[in-house]
């Protein structure tokens, strides 16, 4: 067990270093430490399942160790932000004020095709429309279009719009959602009353959503009117 514990620690540190050196391209949507933990846990968990020669502790001890390392490292990184630069990458500005930083692109080993693909996925099709593009530390590209290509906001159009609030599920398949009702500050009697006013009964509905302003939306059960 002692050896397994120390081996897990070594592999964790080595994998973090390797992933860090590989750069943001390999990360996807996770932080380096999260990715390493996920990679290791998925591999370790399958070992005693497929190989009966291995005691269960060979998987349990490393998995618990990784969980502890993951929680502790996140707490340490919050307390000492400077350490974060060691284990995770910093965001990199690729396009600033409409100017493409070719040096940054080379450093990140990202081709122009890949950059264009990422920009298109953000809803922008023309490179000249981009004011700012930042490769975040989780490997995702944040794209800010130039102001003249952004859709106008209600404020810019001087429109008076009300905050609608989030719609929450209050009734689902025959059961009232206590959490949903609490979030909109109403009770089940209120929902029933509102439905009755609209000539509806709960029996004929699949689900009901509502917001705190009293806005109601429902989906009837299939086969019912």
């Amino acid at each position: 067990m002692t050896t397994i514990l120390i081996r897990t620690l070594i592999i964790y540190v080595v994998l973090i270093l390797i992933m860090r050196l590989m750069g943001k391209r390999q990360i996807g949507e996770l932080e380096v430490t999260d990715l390493v933990t996920t990679l290791l846990i998925s591999e370790i968990a399958s070992l005693p399942i497929t190989n009966q020669e291995i005691p269960l502790s060979y998987a349990v001890i490393p998995m618990v160790t990784l969980l502890i390392l993951e929680v502790f490292s996140s707490v340490i990184l919050i307390r000492f932000p400077k350490l974060k630069n060691i284990v995770s990458a910093r965001p990199t500005v690729i396009i600033n004020k409409g100017k493409l930083d070719q040096h940054a692109l080379r450093d990140l080993r990202i081709s122009l095709d890949e950059l264009m693909s990422e920009i298109r996925q953000s809803g922008v099709t023309d490179l000249s429309e981009v004011e700012c593009a930042i490769l975040e530390k989780n490997g995702k590209l944040t794209v800010l279009p130039k102001a003249r290509f952004l859709p106008p906001t209600a404020e810019q159009l001087a429109l008076d719009v009300k905050e609608e609030g989030l719609m929450h599920i209050v009734y689902n398949n025959g059961v009232f959602s206590r959490v949903g009702l609490e979030l909109i500050g109403k009770d089940s009697a209120w929902v029933e009353k509102q439905l009755k006013r609209r000539g509806l009964t709960l029996q004929e509905l699949f689900c009901v959503t509502a917001n705190e302003n009293g806005k109601l939306f429902w989906i009837p059960k299939e086969g019912k009117k």
Binding site: M1, T2, I61, V64, L67, I68, V75
Partner: peptide
Amino acid sequence: RAFIITVILLAVLLGTVTVNH
């Protein structure tokens, strides 16, 4: 709460490893 549980887990882990050793 997760941190406290992790600290307890660490103590259990170190205890188990020591006793086993």
